[in-house]
Amino acid sequence: MIGLARDGGAILGLIVIGGTILMAALAPALSPADPVKNSLIDRLAPPMWSAGGSAKHPLGTDTLGRDVASRLLYGARVSLIVGLAAVVVAGVLGVALGLVSGYYRGFTDDALMRLGDVQLAFPVLVLAVAVLAVLGASLANVILVLGVTGWITYARIVRGETLSLRQREFVEAARALGATDRYLLWRHILPNVLPPVTVVATFSVARTIIAEASLSFLGLGIPPPAPSWGAMLDEGRNYITTGWWLALFPGLAILLLVLGINLVGDWLRDQLDPRMERSM
């Protein structure tokens, strides 16, 4: 953790991320109202400091009279879950396949890498739209789509690292001593590929949060009435002139969180592997 104290950006980033996690965790305690229950009578109330606002809804209400502050708090959960879970799906899949590919080489390697080539040459959004049309939009399916389309990046990095690691002396030595493949992969190779993977994963969390918002714009995001920052921003875009608070707060929340994650990612990269971004 050298240099964290000197990197003001990273500290800021950690504060933002920590704050978001806290918001998400304490959402039920902090929320002034139910985030899903709607009440048309209270529709489009402005934030408390504007004319016509009230302390009952500190950040105003949305088009269905739901409390924006509460939706923002609960939305932090959805955005974090989507960002993290999709990256975990992609990361686990990518690391596993990358290890297998780089370690065993041969036909498995060829098959997996060609599969990756095919997937890269397939337009991601067409895949997302089609898969969500088949499976239906839901939190789990959005995570699945965002996760499964991301494995190839990790697989390529891990494969490259594994290819060079398996030739290295300490691995050769362990093998000479009769270590099994499984032991080698777990104890020697995996720990060494994790640092670059961590850096890529950090940036991916940020990108996934943005991608979730984009899916909402295309009508494929987290289905209503569950609050997600992306869906809130998308709903708010038709009210830019009549209800500016609808888009402003989720927009700011996304901006800050993504900014924070990227700042931490920058710092992690400097710490773990300065040559990292080559393989991204």
Partner: peptide
């Protein structure tokens, strides 16, 4: 750079139009 990467493109586009 950080700023530009932290906004969904539909939002950036709408803001630029406005």
């Amino acid at each position: 750079s950080l700023f530009l990467q932290s906004m969904p493109s539909f939002w950036l586009g709408l803001m630029l139009i406005l």
